[in-house]
Simulated scan of single mutants.
Amino acid sequence: MKIVLTGSLGNIGKPLTQLLVERGHEIKVISSKEERASEIENLGAVAAVGSIKDVEFLTETFKDADAVYLMEAWEGIGSLFDKEIDFLAEFKNIGQNYVKAVQRSGVKKIIHLSSIGAHSDKGNGSLLVHYNVEQILQTLPKDIAIKFMRPVGFFSNIYRWLPTIESQGKIIQSYGGSHKEPWVSPYDIAATIAEEMEKPFRGRTVHYIASDEVSPEEIVNTLGKIIGKPDLEWKVIPGEELLNQMLSAGVNEWIAKGMVAMQKAQGDGSLYEDFYANKPILGKVKLEDFAKEFAYIYKENKLK
């Protein structure tokens, strides 16, 4: 198959590119950075340098493709500390760009990387952007098949908490405890998407992706042990306090409020209602596997 991938060589894009190339597919990877081109080509793919905000570029790149993989990267839109960005509007614009490019190019098979929480426009905080993009893609003609992939929270997002883990021996959030929730590795997301590329495309389907189910307490116990911080704590603070901390740090107000709302939904379980109603088979990467990777990054970070 001829497949176009958006998202460059990120946490999902790189292993996905490798898997699809190994399976014998012709892969074209879109990246906004010219310096990524050689790395993409070294993996056996073709680099297409341009912006997903450019409809003409997308259209030309999608032409002759058997399938395209669409995603919207927060980093590609801008910094979470940029107070001027309207993330809702930016995500909608990208979704609309995809719709135009897909129709103009004639591609008929789409895999879209969405997210947990995209089943509803309420109670999901900043994940609302993924619901919006799904709805925009749903406006495409019905002869265009779409697989909506909804991964849960990434294990790799735990790296965002390295500063307080190192300085305070704590992960500080507005929810916690012993209740298990699903987590996913980017490697399992890539593996699932690679498999779905080769399966039949029929209509519009939703696929949840998860690797493991663990509680906040299990996370700190496992990570604390492997990095030599057995007293690592998952500290729960009121949502209002977390919001104030993020705003004081300069986080975009809509993002900060959305993260607090999302954590509320995590804490009361409402974020995962549709996931558990359509629970997938869990992937291969477990917390203990991620912990080994985390320990390596933690050690490297301390040496800097």
Rank of each mutant, 00 (worst) to 15 (best):
Met1Pro: 11
Met1Glu: 05
Met1Asp: 04
Val4His: 01
Leu5Gln: 06
Gly7Phe: 00
Gly10Pro: 08
Ile12Ser: 05
Lys14Gly: 06
Lys14Trp: 10
Leu16Ile: 08
Leu16Val: 10
Thr17Leu: 08
Val21Asp: 12
Val21Glu: 11
Gly24Glu: 11
Glu26Ser: 14
Val29Pro: 01
Ser31Thr: 15
Glu34Leu: 13
Glu34Asp: 12
Glu34Asn: 11
Glu35Asn: 15
Arg36His: 15
Ala37Met: 07
Ser38Ile: 03
Ala47Pro: 07
Val49Asp: 03
Ser51Val: 09
Phe57Asp: 02
Leu58Lys: 06
Thr59Asn: 05
Phe62Trp: 09
Asp64Arg: 03
Ala65Asp: 02
Lys83Asp: 11
Glu84Pro: 00
Asp86Asn: 15
Leu88Thr: 13
Leu88Tyr: 08
Phe91Trp: 12
Lys92Trp: 02
Asn97Val: 12
Gly106Glu: 04
Gly106Trp: 02
Lys108Arg: 14
Lys108Cys: 06
Lys108Leu: 03
His112Val: 04
Ser115Ile: 09
Asp121His: 15
Lys122Thr: 15
Gly123Ile: 07
Gly123Lys: 13
Gly125Ala: 12
Leu128Met: 12
Leu128Cys: 01
Leu128Gly: 01
His130Gly: 01
Asn132Pro: 00
Gln135Asp: 00
Thr139Val: 11
Lys147Cys: 05
Pro151Ser: 05
Gly153Cys: 00
Asn157Met: 09
Asn157Arg: 09
Ile158Gln: 11
Trp161Val: 00
Ser167His: 09
Gly169Val: 02
Lys170Ile: 00
Ser174Leu: 04
Tyr175Thr: 11
His179Pro: 04
Pro182Gln: 13
Ile193Met: 15
Ala194Cys: 10
Ala194Met: 06
Ala194Arg: 05
Gly203His: 05
Arg204Ile: 02
Thr205Glu: 14
Val206Cys: 01
Tyr208Ile: 02
Ser211Val: 12
Ser211His: 10
Pro216Arg: 14
Ile219Ala: 07
Asn221Cys: 01
Lys225Ser: 15
Ile226Asn: 08
Ile226His: 07
Gly228Asp: 12
Leu232Gln: 05
Glu233Tyr: 09
Glu233Cys: 03
Lys235Cys: 05
Glu240Thr: 02
Glu240Pro: 00
Glu240Trp: 08
Leu242Trp: 09
Leu243His: 09
Leu243Asn: 03
Gln245Thr: 13
Met246Val: 00
Ser248His: 09
Ser248Pro: 03
Ser248Asp: 14
Gly250Glu: 06
Ile255Gly: 03
Lys257His: 13
Gly258Pro: 05
Gly258Trp: 01
Val260Phe: 01
Lys264Arg: 14
Gln266Tyr: 11
Ser270His: 10
Phe275Ser: 10
Tyr276Pro: 11
Ile281Leu: 15
Val285Ser: 02
Val285Lys: 07
Lys286Cys: 09
Phe290Tyr: 15
Asn301Glu: 03
Leu303Trp: 10
